[in-house]
Amino acid sequence: MIKVWIGIVLCIASFSFDALAAKEEIKPLVLFQGEVAEGSFLHMVEKGVLAFEQATSITVVQKRLPRGDERYLKELENSAKQGFSPIIVQDSNSLARFANIAKAYPATKFISLDVAYDVPNILALTFNHAEGAYVVGFMAGLKTKTNKVGFIGGLDIPVINNFRCGYELGLQQANANATLVTRYINKGTFSWDDLDSAQQLSQQMLSDNVDVIFPVSGMASKAVMDTMKAAGLQHYSFGIDANSNADYPQTLLASFEKRSDKAVFAALMLLKNGIWNGTEKHFGIKQGIIQITVNPENTALNASDKEKVDELITQLKGKNNRISREILTHCKV
């Protein structure tokens, strides 16, 4: 009798094991919107895709489209029809109809960056931006002389406001007297590449006596960093998405690195391994996906400042830490 039972158990076990091990054939695609420039968010996504290709020898088809939501959505639908799965939707922030398309193609897996949907075939890769932004805000609070600190976002959307929220909390923590000035480019999907608007906004802020600005506006952020560099010493900004410290040795305090490449790589591997458990993977400092890299060239940062930043990051990695709780309480994801 026992033998029979063992036999049954082994049978079931081997069956389930086979079921898990059965890997779907995947036909991945990545849809880019806008220029894949060095150091940009899109570039980071591309890096992840390439790493996946290298690791698995599975080709990921890359489609690069110019800016324009309608066209992007159309291409997305086409790709789904063509049987691509998973499809990495790089820019789902402003795509109102993305969820509907996904629902229309339930057999197709979509990987959404930054935004989560309650759709079973969309895997969202979300990031705890506020944690990193808290550290950035803290540094801004330490370094501002005018006690006026700026934030320039690409769009006034929840993802960007998550940055802003953490930034403000960190700022208040370091310097209770500092005030935050917030501006958005707000030109839809074009906002991310709108260097002119970004420059104008930062100039405005400069004339308003703002001396530290954190830009979170894709490629347009570069204009802010340039403006602050042009404004000369004691005017600071931060790098975003990639590490830009080397380009702005005296004006960049730190870079907010968002290792989307790692997240994308992991997501592709996940699907390659046939695992689909949940519709959201959330990454933060604890996963090393959000990294704050202090600019080692910047002489304005003394050892004490660096120590404080290190301490802050260590705190953020702490179990049930005060900062994370504060962020959870105040900032919407």
Partner: peptide, 26 residues
Amino acid sequence: SRLDYIRSVKLESDLYAMTFAEVINT
């Protein structure tokens, strides 16, 4: 990390080439 004498714990994935979780006891 509930254990007082643990300074830090990190779970790293080889397959996904990333850290799944890390906690540092302060």
